[in-house]
Design a protein around this nucleic acid. Structure first.
Length: 742
DNA sequence: TACTATACGGTTTTT
DNA sequence: CCGTATAGTA
């Protein structure tokens, strides 16, 4: 009696999928089939008639994950999954607030501020309040506001241990008032506002508590305090009659603590919901054994884990290759050579990823890939809806939907330039503040020379509104792009070609949105709502619309960006102390280091077949050469899993000359053959030591030579043991070669 | 008002 | 080193 739905699941997956209506926590290791379990669980609940589509709420963090779930469900189910609430926290909150905008105290067409909009709103606020932005840096304030919202705290609830905090709380309050006045809502507000709506409006709360019988949460380890409270509220706090909460997550893959993710939620959930069913998915279907062994060995060094050990049936596979380069340039060049060799052997470019800790590291890699003519794609750049031309066009649309949106007003009032300069804008802001009205509404009350140009702008917006209101959405967008002068502006600009194409792409995005939502607005109100929906979509799915064709290319991205992805071949570079683990995390004691280690764990588990780890003796950071010790994470991997690659293997046959790494001659030859821009120092000291050289000292342990004075004294960074000046003639320094280091 | 020179500050990032 | 933000000048 094999059930086709469960046919290819392992026992633990099956157990998770077929649990009765109870709260459950699924600890799903990397590559253990977590999305599969989530979707199959939903399909199973429906098939067993334990739930109707309307009774299901599934929450994810990214739109991509939500879409993935939806499309898998579509393939599994006999019916359309449209009746279910499946989406991101923010998307679902937006849906909730649009449905109950009055009860939530919002305008029908409220707009959503993305992070950049929020920042400019804060800057504007400080300006109108005449607040010194040196004393209250806008970014700082933004963080302050968001952190408190994410903790569920309104201004009056903020703890004020000192005067400075009190002032910041006051600015938080002013910011809220401004948002309310302008009918705009930031990301954190979407969550907090819908949480408060449910909390204080009993009929609405009861409605949703009774409606949702099953709540499923993906990437639960990434939830913040407020998101967890939101879930608790919807699940009626675990009381009898509330929804069954099914949370899937991996504490070892929690890498967003810096933006408020609270791993403690997993333990809290377990306790507060008296979770009896904790299921571990430990069988990994992705990577070979050596890779998993390395990952397990690394993560074992973290305390306070819920505990989990990945295993596979795929066999141990290849050893993990480790390469020590002289410099970052050298490292990049080696990676590119290796990639070219792999491609010659038949590898596919898109199956190869190069991962790094910080975006700044992509430069050298890009340079080498570009020179070698290897197609590559860097992830994490500017996203479609965040491009300035797109934001400008959207700002015009926002003004059509909501003239009170001062952020949008300020963005385009003088773009393209209309002779409305800073002084005029300030004058308008002052007047608006006095009248306690929006910028837009204040314009007609002004007089004087600059008032005329402002009035022309308002007339332009009014005209556009009149001209577009009967048009279908895509034509509205097209019209605005044309009529606002944006198109003409970019046509006149020398390098405006890409921007023009993006504006065309925006019109196409409106078209597909129009088609997907199958909206056929009949009344004016419906047409307005459709425009508002499109604008929400643009704010909430900014990254969705990546410009640029899906070319067959090597994939470059940060480890963060690689979470959830997998590749046959992974290069993880820059494995040096202060780079990975990152210097800023090292100063945050254990918590910071443990998060870095989880990041390392995520990085390693991205690889299916082959993993390369590399580090460089010297690295150019912000124009300065740094000499770092190799990363402690490298040493946390059992040496039996590693295969050190000698410099030798690459110098022979790769055109650099030289015949080995050990010989003293090779040192200078190899390093001088590196490009002239490379600042790698090659001056030799007695005993064959150089700056950048890895060494070992009987007392201080491993270190790296970072400086030298004359021929006799060297400065060595011993990491935890500190930085020391040593006499070469006295100190028993031993050179450590990459292939001999244990 | 618009353009150019200097200072400054630089993890990770989704919504 | 490199982009951004502000100050100063045409």
């Amino acid at each position: 009696m094999s059930d086709p739905l469960l046919a290819s699941l392992n026992p633990q997956q099956t157990e998770a999928v077929t649990l009765p209506a109870r709260h459950a926590l699924v600890l799903a290791g990397a590559g253990s089939g977590k999305t599969r379990v989530l979707t199959t669980r939903i399909a199973w609940l429906l098939r067993q008639s334990m739930a109707s589509p309307a009774g299901i709420l599934a929450v994810t963090f990214t739109n991509k994950a939500a879409r993935e779930m939806l499309s898998r469900l579509e393939a599994m189910l006999p019916m359309s999954p449209r009746g279910m609430w499946i989406g991101t926290f923010h998307g679902l909150c937006n849906r909730l607030l649009r449905a109950h905008y009055k009860d939530a105290g919002l305008d029908r067409l409220f707009q959503i501020l993305d992070a950049a909009d929020q920042l400019s709103a804060i800057k504007r606020l400080l300006k109108t309040l005449n607040v010194d932005d040196e004393k209250f840096p806008p970014r700082n304030l933004q963080y302050f506001i968001n952190a408190h919202k994410e903790a569920g705290l309104r201004p009056h609830a903020v703890e004020v241990p000192d005067e400075y905090t009190r002032q910041r709380a006051e600015l938080y309050q002013e910011y809220e008032a401004q948002c309310q006045r302008e009918s705009v809502v930031d990301f954190a507000e979407l969550l907090l506002r819908s949480f408060e709506l449910l909390q204080r409006n009993e009929p609405i709360r009861r409605h949703y508590q009774q409606r949702f019988r099953y709540i499923l949460v993906d990437e639960f380890q990434d939830t913040n305090v407020l998101q967890y409270r939101w879930l608790k509220l919807l699940a009626a706090d675990g009381q009898e009659g509330g929804a069954a909460l099914f949370c899937v997550g991996d504490d070892d893959q929690s890498i967003y603590r810096f933006r408020g993710a609270e791993i403690g939620n997993m333990r809290d959930f377990e306790r507060e919901f008296q979770v009896r069913d904790i299921i571990r998915l430990e069988q990994n279907y992705r990577s070979h054994g050596n890779i998993l062994d390395a990952a397990n060995a690394i993560i074992r060094n973290n305390a306070n884990r819920l505990g989990k050990n990945l295993w596979t049936e795929r066999g141990e596979g290849e050893p993990i290759r480790v390469f020590e380069a002289f410099s970052d340039t050298d490292e990049a060049r080696w990676i590119v050579e290796e990639i070219q060799a792999l491609l010659r052997d038949g590898a596919t470019r898109s199956d190869i990823a190069v991962l790094y800790r910080a975006n700044a590291q992509s430069r050298v890699l890009e340079h080498q890939l570009f020179s070698a003519g290897v197609p590559y794609r860097v992830y994490g750049g500017l996203r479609f809806f965040e491009r300035q031309e797109i934001k400008h066009a959207l700002a015009y649309l926002r003004l059509l939907a909501n003239p009170g949106d001062d952020t949008a007003f300020m963005r385009v009032v003088n773009f393209p330039t209309r002779g409305i300069g800073a002084r005029t804008q300030e004058m308008l802001q002052d007047a608006a503040r006095q009248r306690n009205g929006s910028l837009y509404a204040t314009v007609p009350h002004l007089s004087g020379k600059s008032a005329a140009s402002l009035a022309r702008f308002v007339t332009l917006i009014e005209t556009m509104r009149r001209e577009t209101q009967a048009l279908p959405l895509p034509e509205q967008v097209e019209h605005v792009v044309e009529r606002s002068g944006l198109r003409a502006h970019y046509q006149a600009e020398r390098e405006g070609q890409d921007r023009l194409e993006n504006l065309d792409e925006l019109v196409r995005a409106a078209e597909s949105f129009h088609i997907e939502t199958r909206a056929a607005p009949e009344t004016l109100a419906q047409a307005h709502a459709l425009l508002a929906d499109f604008l929400s979509h643009a704010s909430l799915e900014a990254g969705d619309h990546q410009a640029g064709a899906q070319e067959e290319a090597v994939q470059l991205m940060t480890v963060h960006a690689a979470k959830g992805l997998e590749f046959d071949i992974v290069f993880l570079c820059g494995l040096e102390e202060e780079v990975f683990p990152h210097i800023n995390s090292l100063s945050e004691s254990v918590v910071g280091l443990e998060e870095e280690r989880r990041l390392m764990y995520v990085a390693v588990t991205r690889a299916r077949e082959r993993l390369y780890l590399s580090h460089a003796q010297s690295r150019l950071l912000r124009g300065q050469t740094h000499y770092h010790l190799r990363s402690r994470f490298l040493d946390e991997i059992p040496s039996g899993l590693l295969k050190p690659l000698a410099q030798k293997s690459r110098f022979s046959g790769s055109g650099y000359g030289g015949d080995g790494w050990r010989g003293e001659k090779t040192h200078s030859r190899a390093s001088t053959s590196i490009s002239p821009t490379d600042t790698f120092q090659s001056r030799e000291l007695p005993g064959g030591f150089r700056i950048g050289q890895n060494v070992r000292h009987p007392t201080f342990g491993y270190g790296v030579i970072i400086d030298a004075e004359g021929d006799a004294t060297v400065r060595v960074n011993f990491g935890d043991a500190g930085v020391k000046w040593l006499m070469l003639s006295i100190a028993k320094l031993e050179a450590v070669m990459p292939e001999s280091k244990d």
